Measured scan of single mutants.
Amino acid sequence: MQNSHSGVNQLGGVFVNGRPLPDSTRQKIVELAHSGARPCDISRILQVSNGCVSKILGRYYETGSIRPRAIGGSKPRVATPEVVSKIAQYKRECPSIFAWEIRDRLLSEGVCTNDNIPSVSSINRVLRNLASEKQQMGADGMYDKLRMLNGQTGSWGTRPGWYPGTSVPGQPTQDGCQQQEGGGENTNSISSNGEDSDEAQMRLQLKRKLQRNRTSFTQEQIEALEKEFERTHYPDVFARERLAAKIDLPEARIQVWFSNRRAKWRREEKLRNQRRQASNTPSHIPISSSFSTSVYQPIPQPTTPVSSFTSGSMLGRTDTALTNTYSALPPMPSFTMANNLPMQPPVPSQTSSYSCMLPTSPSVNGRSYDTYTPPHMQTHMNSQPMGTSGTTSTGLISPGVSVPVQVPGSEPDMSQYWPRLQ
């Protein structure tokens, strides 16, 4: 039975679970980093996980050691009161100082060594604690504590007292930064006198190289990059290397530039699409467009005044059976039934097929058609009795279509119309 579990990581490298990497692998990681390889490249070359490479390099940059820390136990506290007071002093002298600059000053002034120097995250935590204590304490208590930490007896009751030896409130920041720059020169002199001055200088240079600022491109470089971006948004590694040799930039910087440029292009394309949609959409909808001609068919113009009344309900007709019959029939052209047409008796099958359309009241044959006459024609229609054979009435077949029909004066039988409509 094995005491430890061995495995293979996602890159194909072998590791022992819970145990640190061998010293030979750690040394190779540092050597590759000094030669300029990126952590992701080191991870692929040595088949070590990216997190492990970053952790080893980060500890090497901070402490200069590649040895693993002790497994188990607690780390001794490195942010001692003396170190905290120095950090507060540096922050007062130059409020814009960075944590890694404070760390360098602690090393250069001999406050800490490589073994007990606090990390950048520890210094940031100390600065946050100082800021929170400043908010919790009152103004007087804060000034007393700062005077105690600074070891001075001057008056701290006013704002300019934060910067000793100065009279203009805006000047101390520059003086403090100048003092810090002077301390940086002392850093070089002190570290050069040490035993491991060369190694420390190499480590600091490598650290500065990794902690780079934003790349500033010249106009020629920007023009070359934009020209390549117009050709393709995704250049391959050969195109990037050719462009890197042409404009004297690292291939990694060119790759990052193209990634950022593609993101910018997507944002601009989104804005262009929004403007295009806004320009195509009308600002207001016309009133006429809300009524579609496919839904509402136009009603033909009436030929006679009587045809303006298109349904039985508008003429005072309360018989719903006839109203439904007229509205359900398709529109037909106007025609006239003459008196000489043969009077065919209704076929029983045809009569039964339209039995649902006729009223059940037996008085329908005896009703006159003056009910369908509009009010303004009552006088004219009353002067001509319906009993004469020459009287013409208008029957409504569908809305908007008038059918003048000659009705025999002897017997106005409704059943004569249905064979004609089939």
Score class of each variant (00 low, 15 high):
Pro68Met: 00
Phe15Lys: 05
Pro76Tyr: 03
Ile45Ser: 09
Val126Ile: 14
Val8Ala: 03
Asn129Phe: 05
Pro68Asp: 00
Gly13Tyr: 03
Pro68Phe: 06
His34Trp: 10
Ala99Arg: 06
Asp104Tyr: 08
Lys28Phe: 07
Gln135Cys: 09
Arg105Phe: 09
Glu82Ala: 14
Ala99Ser: 09
Leu146Glu: 12
Arg77Tyr: 04
Arg44Ile: 05
Ala33Cys: 07
Gly51Pro: 00
Arg103Met: 04
Val53Lys: 01
Asp23Cys: 10
Ala33Asn: 08
Lys145Met: 12
Ile97Trp: 08
Gln10Leu: 07
Tyr90Pro: 02
Thr63Asp: 01
Leu149Trp: 05
Asn124Ser: 07
Ser74Gln: 04
Arg44Met: 05
Lys28Trp: 06
Ala131Val: 10
Ser121Cys: 00
Asp41Pro: 00
Gly72Pro: 05
Asp104Ala: 12
Asn124Leu: 06
Cys40Trp: 01
Val53Asp: 00
Leu127Glu: 06
Ser108Asn: 13
Pro118Glu: 02
His5Ser: 11
Pro39Met: 08
Tyr60Cys: 00
Tyr61Gln: 08
Lys75Ile: 05
Asn124Trp: 15
Ser6Thr: 14
Asn50His: 02
Ile102Thr: 03
Cys94Trp: 10
Ser4Gln: 13
Phe98His: 09
Arg77Asp: 03
Asp115Gly: 14
Phe98Thr: 06
Ser119Leu: 02
Arg38Met: 01
Gly73Ile: 02
Thr80Asn: 05
Pro68Leu: 00
Asn17Glu: 01
Ile45Ala: 13
Gly110Arg: 11
Met137Asn: 10
Gln135Met: 11
Ser85Cys: 09
Lys134Leu: 09
Pro81His: 07
Leu130Gln: 11
Arg103Val: 07
Val14Phe: 11
Ala33Pro: 03
Arg105Met: 12
Leu146Gly: 15
Ser122Leu: 04
Arg44Cys: 05
Ile87Tyr: 02
Met142Leu: 11
Pro39Ala: 11
Tyr61Pro: 01
Leu106Trp: 03
Phe98Arg: 14
Pro39Tyr: 07
Gln10Gly: 06
Ile102Val: 04
Ile87His: 13
Glu109Asn: 13
Leu146Ser: 13
Gly138Asn: 14
Ser54Asp: 01
Ser65Ala: 05
Pro76Phe: 03
Val83Pro: 02
Val53Met: 00
Ser54Ile: 03
Leu149Glu: 15
Arg38Ile: 02
Ser24Val: 11
Pro95Thr: 09
Cys112Lys: 05
Asn114Ile: 09
Leu106Gln: 04
Gly110Pro: 08
Arg69Tyr: 07
Cys40Ser: 11
Cys40Gly: 05
Arg59Asn: 05
Pro68Ile: 03
Pro95Arg: 15
Ile123Asn: 04
Lys28Gln: 10
Pro95His: 09
Gly36Phe: 04
Asp23Tyr: 08
Ala88Leu: 09
His34Tyr: 12
Leu146Phe: 11
Gln135Lys: 13
Gly51Cys: 00
Ile102Glu: 04
Gln27Lys: 13
Gly51Asp: 00
Ala131Gly: 08
Val84Gln: 07
Asn3Lys: 14
Ser108His: 12
Arg103Gly: 07
Gly141Asp: 15
Leu107Tyr: 14
Val14Gln: 10
Ala99Gln: 05
Lys145Ile: 13
Pro81Phe: 06
Gly36Leu: 01
Gly64Leu: 05
Cys94Asn: 14
Trp100Arg: 15
Ala99Pro: 04
Met137Gly: 10
Leu32Gly: 01
Gln89Pro: 00
Ile29Lys: 02
Gly36Val: 01
Val120Glu: 07
Gln89Ala: 08
Ser65Gln: 10
Gly138Leu: 12
Gly18Lys: 05
Val14Thr: 13
Leu146His: 14
Lys28His: 06
Asn116Lys: 15
Ala33Phe: 05
Asp144Phe: 08
Val111Glu: 05
Ile45Cys: 09
Thr25Gly: 02
Glu31Cys: 05
Asp140Tyr: 12
Ser54Val: 06
Cys94Pro: 05
Met137Pro: 12
Gln89Asp: 08
Lys145Glu: 12
Ser6Lys: 14
Glu31Leu: 09
Arg26Thr: 01
Met137Trp: 11
Val111Trp: 09
Gly7Ser: 15
Gly138Ser: 11
Ala139Ile: 15
Met142Asp: 08
Gln10Ile: 05
Arg59Glu: 03
Tyr61Asp: 06
Phe15Trp: 06
Arg19Lys: 12
Phe15Val: 03
Ala37Leu: 12
Thr63Arg: 04
Pro81Ile: 07
Leu21Gly: 05
Ala37Phe: 15
Ile29Tyr: 00
Ile87Gln: 00
Ile71Met: 13
Ser49Asn: 01
Pro68Ala: 11
Met148Ala: 14
Ala70Thr: 10
Met142Asn: 08
Gly138Trp: 10
His34Val: 09
Ser85Thr: 11
Leu46Ile: 07
Asn3Trp: 08
Arg44Leu: 04
Met137Lys: 13
Asn50Tyr: 15
Ala99Leu: 01
Arg59Leu: 07
Asp144Leu: 10
Lys91Arg: 04
Arg105Asp: 07
Val16Asn: 11
Gln89Glu: 09
Ser85Arg: 12
Val84Lys: 11
Asn114His: 12
Ser119Gly: 03
Arg125Gln: 00
Ser119Pro: 02
Glu109Met: 14
Gln47Phe: 06
Leu130Trp: 11
Glu31Arg: 08
Thr80Lys: 07
Asn114Leu: 10
Ser54Ala: 06
Arg103Ser: 06
Glu93Cys: 09
Asn116Leu: 11
Ser54His: 10
Ser6Gln: 14
Gln10Glu: 06
Gln2Gly: 13
Val30His: 01
Ala131Asn: 10
Gly13Lys: 05
Val48Lys: 04
Ser24Met: 09
Asn9Leu: 01
Val16Met: 15
Gln89Leu: 09
Ala37Asn: 11
Ser65Pro: 02
Glu109Tyr: 09
Ile56Thr: 01
Gly51Phe: 00
Val111Pro: 13
Ile87Asp: 00
Ile87Arg: 00
Ala139Leu: 11
Gly72Thr: 06
Arg67Glu: 11
Gly36Pro: 03
Pro20Met: 01
Leu149Met: 13
His34Glu: 14
Pro20Phe: 03
Thr113Arg: 14
Ile29Met: 12
Val83Gly: 03
Gly18Phe: 00
Ser96Val: 10
Cys112Tyr: 03
Ala88Trp: 15
Lys145Thr: 10
Gly18Glu: 03
Lys55His: 04
